[in-house]
Design a protein around this nucleic acid. Structure first.
Length: 383
DNA sequence: TGGATCACGCACG
DNA sequence: CACGTACGTGATCCTG
């Protein structure tokens, strides 16, 4: 309690009273309730899924060892690297600090060079699902048949939440087999799970804080933002945008939010650096507000020493003054991205407080259970 | 022997 | 694997 007046003074001095009183403090009670409620998972289905994975992993091992000409620990990146790049003589694509890189990107490039590669990719996917999810989640099921995560509100640099023991914010969804895990989260009898997610919240936040009229108009007109961007970048009418153009425009939109470089964009969508540069230039000439914002937000942060969200949450970035180019460039991407990611975090926290209160008031049997950065999951009575 | 820590890889938004 | 996270496994260090 000796700290209280000191910290209260700090809050006020930094203009974060509103953030604290209207968001962070009331959010604590919401998070406490969500953790206590937990979410139900189908234990029997999870067990069967784990057994199926065990069988497939075993088949995969047999296949891999038939190609390698002997047993080794496939989980060891060191042993795997020696096999692939020394014994089998495959071309090393990339290095790590300590040896050969064997990550998914490398395997993707090698997958047609040797039949062992696809088998290793399968093995990686299956063992990830088994150890982290099938086995990992099973250990966390409590007596009540539910999984109770812990939400951390004081961990991230941007203001997002994180979730631990277990992490329920990274349940698989992108692959078909992974999505099977997600289906095992079920409502209690008589209820349904309602999943409500924001559409393109980060790009909407960008359009707002950058004050970009073209991007705001696209959202106000309810057009698909990636298609609208493709039309701008490639200079074609909206109706004539091809699926490939849309995919490229989507990558550019993501890249902008992360603080793009032509090099990583080119790598991501498989075009030349020259083409990637042209995409970015076109983009910034059409979204002028975004271009100005990118410069201004970095310059402001360099001057003040921190960058901030719409609600005044700060992130200090001393590396902006580094003499090392890579360190400084990284800091500039952080200065650009943090207000976007952090404002989105502010907004969903505010929404959580309002949803919790509105449900208690009007639908007391409906319960907010989870938050996954841009989505809320509610368990509510059927009908 | 076994706990702590680092490196690596990979699940999500 | 650009921004932000959590976590499992292997390898290595260190302690007692």
């Amino acid at each position: 309690w000796h700290l209280r007046p000191v910290l209260a003074g700090e809050l006020e001095k930094n203009g974060m009273e509103r953030l604290y009183r209207q968001i962070e403090l009331p959010l604590c009670r919401v998070l406490y309730r969500m953790e206590n409620r937990g979410i139900c998972i189908d234990r029997e289905q999870l067990r069967q899924f784990g057994d199926m994975l065990s069988r497939r992993i075993s088949d995969c091992e047999t296949l891999i060892f038939s190609y390698s000409g002997g047993e080794f620990n496939i989980n060891s990146t060191r042993q795997l690297g020696e096999l692939l790049f020394e014994k089998l003589g495959l071309p090393p694509v990339k290095k790590t600090k300590t040896g050969y890189s064997t990550n998914a990107e490398v395997l993707e490039k090698l997958k047609n060079k040797h039949p062992i590669i696809p088998a290793i990719m399968d093995y990686r996917m299956l063992t990830k699902l088994k150890s982290t999810y099938a086995d990992g989640l099973m250990k966390e099921i409590r007596e009540d048949g539910r999984i109770h995560t812990t939400f951390q509100n004081l961990v991230t640099a941007t203001g997002r939440l994180s979730s631990t023991e277990p992490n329920l914010q990274n349940i698989p969804v992108r692959t078909d087999l992974g999505a099977e895990i997600r289906k095992m989260f079920i409502p209690k009898p008589g209820c349904v799970l309602v999943d409500a997610d924001y559409s393109q919240i980060e790009l909407r936040v960008l359009a707002h804080i950058a004050g970009d009229d073209a991007m705001r108009k696209a959202f106000c007109d309810h057009v698909d933002i990636h298609t609208a961007t493709a039309a701008q970048v490639f200079g074609v009418p909206v109706e004539e945008v091809t699926p490939l153009q849309r995919r490229h425009a989507k990558a550019v939109n993501f890249g902008i939010v992360y603080g793009i470089s032509e090099f990583s964009l080119a790598e991501d969508i498989g075009v030349s650096r020259y083409e990637a540069r042209a995409y970015i230039d076109n983009y910034l000439n059409n979204y002028r507000g975004v271009k100005e914002y990118m410069h201004k937000v970095v310059a402001d942060a360099r001057e003040k020493g921190y960058t901030e969200t719409l609600y005044g949450r700060r992130r200090y970035i001393p590396e902006l003054k580094s003499s090392n180019f890579n360190v400084r460039s990284g800091a500039e991407r952080i200065a650009l991205n943090t207000p976007i990611q952090g404002t989105a975090a502010d907004l969903i926290k505010l929404a959580m407080i309002r949803v919790e209160n509105a449900l208690n008031e009007k639908y007391p049997d409906a319960k907010l259970l989870l938050q996954v950065h841009d989505e809320l999951i509610v368990e509510c009575p059927e009908g």
